[in-house]
Design a protein around this nucleic acid. Structure first.
Lengths: 292, 292
DNA sequence: TTCATTTGATGCCTTTAAAGTATCAGTTGT
DNA sequence: ACAACTGATACTTTAAAGGCATCAAATGAA
């Protein structure tokens, strides 16, 4: 029974448990009149008689019983609160706001989150869908604790490290002639029309995709620009074009598109963890450490 | 923000909300140094830094954020607690332990309880199955607030009033010859074998049943004694005998027995509300009043 | 009955925790 | 360079809480 509640409350709780003023005063290490006064004050403050007492017996009134139950709850919370604050300071409890992109939520993030939840069940996580450049802004302003995004990270105040790397695969309509091949050389797509992410919103990914094509000796011809992964897959399935996408489980589950590895390609999409270097949230350190 | 929590906690909460010591001190109507000291004391007591502060900015640490959340919960409970104690004192909240017999739970009690819950949702009710004579003991000892039982009530210290009256009906096996009649004169059962409640446990009901038979001019011949209503109905269905039972919905729902009203009978089973005259639980008064 | 014992409540004085005042040292923005 | 803030510290004052002695009522044993 520590000093988190007002003393009138603490005294009342002990009297309610002992139903005896002198024994309560002994448990509280004060003289008996102090207890009498505290109870009288509390009753006056609340305007409710809490204890029925004559010179021989002490009993809780209905109001006192109800009040004790509520006090018990509050006391338990306050006792737990100190320990919880320590756990939060050690990164074992607390809250993280995490930004993610489609590649993360379709790829390694779900598995990683469930492992993290097992190891740190008291850390609550809020997930926010944001494009990479939006995440970098939100990290700078403190709206996000952690970003899962595509580089490059240019700010000196944002730390980052590689979270996951995926090879690219070719994404084709189900009945595309190249779908007959086990693997596809990137050059084979030189004359195809491409469905790509809109450069305004996919500001980091689309340039990477174009750079890889350029390395393979061609500039991709753009048929459609789409705002998100579902739209891209849908447009490919609708035979509007082909695209490159990091290998992930989700894309293999669609029956209306064909996924084929690239031949002789070292191209990798790298998803980074990024966070503000001044962010002192210990749960952030827990997450980063587990991701290593 | 009343005086239910220790002042360090109250001061911390206001600082956490304002993120500014001087503004917090104004809201608390104290000088600013008092707030600084309270925070320092609380941090020392917990062993956790709650607020990151330099001469320009104040921010919650992760530990402080977690601690604030817990304090918020406790503070809300304590604010609510006073109002709840008043409601409990007025009989609008609290707890009742209620004893009941088969006739009550098979009869009017469920309907009455649901009406009571609608009118007094903050009164929690614990229902306890007890025979009438057990309830009278438990009322005397304070283990029950209220009993739903069969009289007579002999103790001067137990108050009682009629809760519900049911006419008796004859309970017959489905294919019993008398089941062909719409109604049955009690005398017609003079030569039947009876299934009755065991007199040890059904100490109040069975004598009443026998008294009614005696009024009709016969002493019922007992084939079986059973400990509860289900057993009585089951034994009747098994053609071990017939019985009298207060009219209630449950008995009409069994297809293996026949229920027939008694002819020219004023016999009624009366279920009483009973309570200890010294019981000051205001929720008890609420219940009794609604039952009137 | 009488009287010692026990209960919670009161009055008066002391102690101590909390508040106030004045001031300091560190930033920030002009 | 300096005024205008911030939160922290030192010292003094105040008021809340505590202790002691005692009371009145109830109980139970002699």
């Amino acid at each position: 029974m520590n000093r988190f509640l007002a003393l009138q409350i603490r005294y009342f709780m002990v009297v309610a448990e002992e139903l005896h003023f002198r024994r309560a005063s002994e448990r509280l290490h004060v003289a008996q009149p102090a207890v009498s006064r505290a109870i009288r004050q509390l009753e006056a403050q609340l305007g409710v008689k809490l204890l029925e007492r004559d010179n021989r017996n002490v009993a809780l009134t209905a109001g006192g019983e109800a009040y004790y139950q509520e006090c018990r709850k509050a006391a338990d919370i306050m006792v737990e609160a100190g320990a919880r604050a320590i756990r939060a300071a050690d990164g074992l409890a607390g809250h993280l706001t995490i930004g993610y992109i489609d590649f993360a939520i379709n790829g390694p993030l779900p598995r990683h989150l469930s492992r993290f939840y097992e190891a740190f069940p008291e850390v609550s996580i809020e997930l926010v869908r944001r494009n990479s450049h939006e995440q970098l802004e939100d990290l700078a302003s403190g709206r996000l604790d952690l970003g899962l995004l595509i580089g490059p990270v240019t700010s000196e105040r944002i730390a980052h490290r590689t979270f996951h790397q995926s090879p690219y695969v070719a994404v084709l309509p189900r009945d595309h002639p190249l779908a007959a091949c086990r693997t596809i050389p990137l050059e084979a797509l030189a004359n195809e029309l491409f469905v790509i992410g809109h450069p305004d919103t996919w500001r980091h990914f689309t340039p990477q995709l174009q750079a890889y094509c350029l390395e393979a000796g061609f500039i991709p011809r753009v048929a459609q620009e789409a705002p998100n992964s579902d739209s891209i897959f849908g447009l490919v399935a609708a035979r509007m074009g082909v695209t490159l996408y990091p290998d992930c489980e989700l894309s293999h589950e669609r029956s209306d598109i064909a996924i084929r590895p690239l031949e002789n390609s070292n191209a990798r999409l790298s998803i980074a963890l990024a966070w503000h270097i001044d962010n002192a949230n210990p749960a952030l350190a827990s997450f980063i450490e587990q991701a290593s």
